[in-house]
Design a protein around this nucleic acid. Structure first.
Length: 413
RNA sequence: GGAGGGGUGGCCGAGCGGCUUAUGGCGGCGGUCUUGAAAACCGCUCUCCGGUCUUCCGGAGCGUGGGUUCGAAUCCCACCCCCUCCGCCA
């Protein structure tokens, strides 16, 4: 959520910042709603002050003149009515604020589509294997490790079953990534609920705007997480963190569920995009001063997985038009998949600034004698599984159709 | 799911209609004393919102949301969570 005070004090800055995303936002309406809310609040509070004072006097005096009591009762009614109006005004304001995306950082390159994203560095060379590399769907079927037909039987299109060494490889990759981040990069491993309450989705920025992409259980009002970012953001909701504890780094494996209105025929082959997938997620709560620096570290931590797996990749900075709702700066990591002949997005690492922290009310105290301040939150995949599995299968395939196991995974297989 | 008990400040724990942001204790911070430390004593210790808003004024907050009342931490209703017992169950 954008700080309403920012909109009050410098609406043009906010407007210009948001417009760089390529959308138009009703800031004037918000400005008006805020004005109205504060007017109502002011009136409510002064009436309440009056009422409170009189009521205290009445309480400490012996006699209770019925005329005065009646007057007080009427005043009370007025306050209740005004209070309701104030509440309505506030929730109208809040619901508008919840729809506003984060303001892109000024350094983020301007763009109008993903075509304007910028490759900032790359590692490794997409090599020529010397034979026609097969796409993973062919490899997977030939090796009997990906069963598309039975996945569809169980759950419909875009579901698959991993079998034998395929399943084993999935598990090996999860363990490997968790171990690297927990043991070498200083993240604390956590195991999280994959179903959460509505509030969690609101804090992370997935609701109210993106409910279409989420799975929801009506009976118990559970929401299925589209990424571990959601429960991780909420881990410290409504807390004031100790300054010395920052940055707090977490790594978590969870399944992820996304409705994704996918057009039939697009990306249908293989396991690149499904309604359920596994992901290892990195997350940081940081001091605002440190968040940009910590984002660089987080990206490097994610990259190191590609390096250890010897998978060529590139790091892409998203332009203003391609930034996610909560993000103010994002780097994607794309890994080369020689079989399907494309760069696959395996990670998206974002600094959300105080956008989520404000929604989730996560603060810290810079000094023991100072007030509280919102922390910054950062998230990034480290990495997203099915696509890493694709890259491994396709990159490690041999001319004879077999697939080698990456050295770092050997003791996990 | 059924029955009973309970949710108060960083923690423990009083208060059960007005003088209560809330007794007391612990912890934390500052001070006195001391060569230093401890002990003892003294003082300070929540958050949010608004007001031409850094130590000023006002408002809100005792699980959450409603209600009764001139007045609610205290009474009523609903919901959530925790504990105990029973049932069910990986």
């Amino acid at each position: 959520m954008i700080d309403i005070k920012l909109i009050r004090d410098d609406p043009e800055m906010v407007r210009k910042g948001l417009e760089r995303r390529g959308d138009v936002f009703a800031l004037d309406e918000i400005f008006e709603a805020d004005l109205q809310y504060r007017q109502l609040l002011g009136r409510t509070e002064s009436l309440r002050a009056e009422h409170k004072k009189a009521s205290k006097q009445l309480g400490s005096s012996r006699e209770k003149p019925p005329q005065l009591v009646e007057e007080m009762r009427r005043l009370g009614e007025q306050i209740t009515a005004l209070q309701q109006q104030t509440r309505d005004a506030k929730s109208a304001l809040d619901s508008m604020l919840l729809e506003l995306p984060n303001i892109p950082h000024v350094d983020v390159p301007f763009g109008t589509s993903e075509a304007d994203n910028v490759v900032v560095r790359s590692w490794g060379e997409p090599g020529d294997p010397g034979f026609a590399a097969l796409p993973h769907w062919d490899l997977g079927e030939r090796l009997g490790i990906i069963d598309f037909e039975r996945g569809v039987k169980l759950s419909g299109s875009r579901f698959y079953v991993l079998k034998g060494l395929g399943a084993r490889l999935e598990r090996a990759l999860i363990s490997f990534m968790l171990d690297v981040h927990a043991e070498q990069h200083g993240y604390k491993e956590v195991c999280l609920p994959a179903m959460v309450k509505r509030d969690c989705m609101e804090s992370s920025g997935h609701l109210p705007k993106f409910g279409d992409n989420l799975y929801h259980d009506d009976e118990d009002d559970f929401w299925f997480v589209p990424t571990a970012e959601v429960p991780l953001t909420n881990l410290h909701r409504d807390e004031i963190l100790a300054a010395e504890s920052l940055p707090i780094n977490y790594v978590a494996y969870t399944p992820c569920f996304r409705r994704e209105k996918m057009s039939a025929g697009a990306d249908t082959r293989g396991i690149k995009r499904g309604h359920q997938f596994d992901k290892v997620e990195l997350y940081k709560f940081t001091d605002p001063e440190e968040s940009d620096h910590e984002l660089e570290r987080l990206v490097h931590d994610a990259e190191s997985i590609c390096q250890k797996l010897c998978l060529p990749y590139r790091v892409v900075q998203l332009c203003t038009a391609d930034l996610g709702f909560a993000a103010r700066r994002t780097y994607d990591i794309e890994v080369w998949a020689p079989g399907c002949d494309e760069w696959l997005e395996v990670s998206s690492c974002s600094n959300c600034g105080d956008f989520q922290a404000r929604r989730a009310n996560i603060r810290y105290r810079p000094r023991s004698d100072s007030g509280t301040q919102f922390v910054h939150t950062l998230n990034g995949s480290g990495l997203a599984l099915p696509r890493v599995l694709i890259a491994v299968l396709e990159s490690y395939q041999q001319a004879d159709g077999t697939v080698l196991v990456p050295e770092v995974l050997e003791h996990y297989m």
